[in-house]
């Protein structure tokens, strides 16, 4: 069908045995159209990614004197809850005792805190399963319990039971002084 049309319009002066040039034009036209469509589509897709002001969210400084031993403060950081927990000696001991217990996402307690600051456990407070906020004091390990699908974390925020695949995430943070921490 298309060959017929090509034959009908071709200039008889030129050899009609030149399909490669015509193929080239077809392919080039299709490629240009596809490339054009893709480059137009991209802005429409990318506009859904975080906007500049969302990305520019500043880091947070937090005064640790507000948190008594055995207490936890939840602050909002990048739209998510952040747990700042002042762990009791019993909680630290329980976490260190289980360092070699079989775990889904094995980690040492020492790797989840800053050296010499074992009482300060700073975690992103969203369950690694589907993003709910776990509550402290539930579950069999005395750590966090997620009300949505029953994931249980220990006193180092490590996943011990339930559908969550990973330990509660650690944000980037640094101690500015003994009583001040900067997160982000």
């Amino acid at each position: 069908m298309s060959n017929l049309a090509v034959g009908a319009t071709i200039d008889p002066g030129h050899a009609s045995d030149d399909p490669s040039r015509r193929d080239f034009i077809h392919i080039a036209a299709i490629a240009a159209a596809a490339g054009g469509a893709a480059s137009v589509a991209w802005p429409f897709i990318d506009q859904m990614n975080p906007a500049a002001d969302t990305l520019a969210l500043a880091s947070v400084e937090f005064d640790l004197t507000k948190v008594m031993e055995g207490m936890q403060v939840t602050i909002k950081w990048r739209g998510k809850p952040l747990f700042i927990r002042n762990r009791s000696a019993a909680e630290i001991a329980a976490a260190q005792k289980d360092d070699n217990a079989p775990m889904k996402d094995p980690a040492k307690d020492a790797d989840r805190v800053k050296a010499g600051k074992e009482q300060w456990l700073i975690l992103i407070g969203t369950c690694t399963h589907l993003g709910c906020v776990p509550t402290f004091g539930g579950g069999d390990w005395g750590g966090w319990f997620c009300p949505c699908h029953g994931s249980q974390y220990d006193t180092a925020g490590r996943i011990r039971k339930g559908p969550a695949p990973l330990n509660l995430a650690l944000p980037d943070y640094a101690f500015l002084s003994d009583t001040k921490v900067k997160i982000g």
Partner: peptide
């Protein structure tokens, strides 16, 4: 998920879209 949210959590951009 970040693309769906338009941020790091469900927030105003998510509600708008």
């Amino acid at each position: 998920t970040t693309w769906l949210w338009g941020g790091f959590a469900v927030d105003n951009p998510t509600l708008n879209r």
